[in-house]
Design a protein around this nucleic acid. Structure first.
Lengths: 192, 192
DNA sequence: CCGATTCTGTACCGGACGTTCCACAACCTA
DNA sequence: TAGGTTGTGGAACGTCCGGTACAGAATCGG
């Protein structure tokens, strides 16, 4: 067989994910990733093939450990009528909590959508798929809150809420207050 | 006196602005700017001091020639009741017109807000000021459309519309359809 | 026409980047 | 214990970056 790795792959990916989250793909340098993961370049390249390979693993970790858990009440089999309001509220808390990664850096994936790495169609597809997950969950939350509304009206509402959530995640880095107001606007729409 | 410049400064700034618009500050390399402007490094540095100086001139050109003209109906002395709807519609057209710079690259300034150059407080202030201009114009549009609404309600509406416009400008690069839906949501809110 | 001043092109600098190479250390199987 | 396989560290590579130095060309006032 040969020698076994001396590191915990999952922990390495989490550490790298936080670096990419904080700095973005391009500005996360290999020295940054080396010191954050405790691995040397060779080990990184041996385990992940390239900086991009490590980034892909970090994105998977981000989706599985960060975004999907918060979205779960909107993706479970039964969605409570107040699940959407609770989701918006918890996201608002995360975006206004001093020191939280989300407050400081927004969304790893949406940030990447504006960066050079988004030239890669695979990255764009990942971002689009993430937005679709968000939109689907919010759609189910709207349906649970307003079951008697016409489908077209539900769609309009869900679309507006999704756009406001995306807006909040995109602007939180540069204007946290605006992000909070954006989520408040979404909450107001969803409750009406 | 000495030798006179052989180039048209305004045209040079416009060319540089388009490069920054398309590629962002960091990814606009000096060779890119040289070929787009027709100037060599020496002339650029002589005229603008640094890459950053050229960027600042490009931002000014962007605000004066791109964003403010479209916003004008909302900043003029008298604002028509349908000025906001017209603004949203014209922005939607710009973001869906194949080949237009806005459709392909969104907003030069908002794109910069997520880039490393935004670490500079001056750049962040410029972005915030731009958002304030947008917010103020939309606020006047809301007031013209719904003069009898309570001020607090007008503010909520204007805030939501501004967030949806910002969201559209930020996501258009990666998902033009989502940008259009975001503006449609804003139009729906403003009309109601 | 002369000299000062200003613009412009070429070559170059130091530094950072992602990636690769190579020698060596560690572990498995036989 | 020997041989093959795999993980690890460190040095090196080629490339690109923004910025600068310098020499020459162009145009001014006198």
């Amino acid at each position: 067989m040969g020698r076994a790795p001396t590191f915990d792959a999952a922990a390495v990916v989490r550490a790298a994910r936080d670096v990419f989250w904080a700095h973005g793909y391009e500005e996360a340098s290999l020295p940054d990733l080396e010191s954050a993961t405790g691995l040397s370049r060779s080990s990184i390249y041996h385990a992940f093939g390239s900086k991009r390979g490590l980034f892909d693993a970090a994105v998977t970790s981000y989706l599985d450990d960060v975004t999907r858990p918060r979205l779960r009440p909107l993706t479970a089999e039964h969605v409570a009528p107040d699940a959407l309001a609770a989701y918006l509220s918890s996201l608002r808390d995360a975006l206004t909590a001093a020191g939280s990664p989300a407050a400081a850096h927004g969304c790893l994936l949406l940030n990447a959508s504006g960066a050079p790495v988004a030239h890669d169609p695979a990255v764009r597809a990942t971002v689009a798929a993430y937005r679709d997950e968000l939109r689907a969950g919010i759609g189910r939350g709207v349906a649970a809150r307003h079951p008697d509304l016409p489908a077209a009206e539900q769609d309009r509402l869900a679309e507006a809420c999704t756009a406001l959530v995306v807006a909040a995640l995109l602007v939180v880095r540069v204007d946290p207050d605006a992000a909070a107001r954006s989520l408040d606007a979404a909450t107001g729409l969803a409750a009406a």
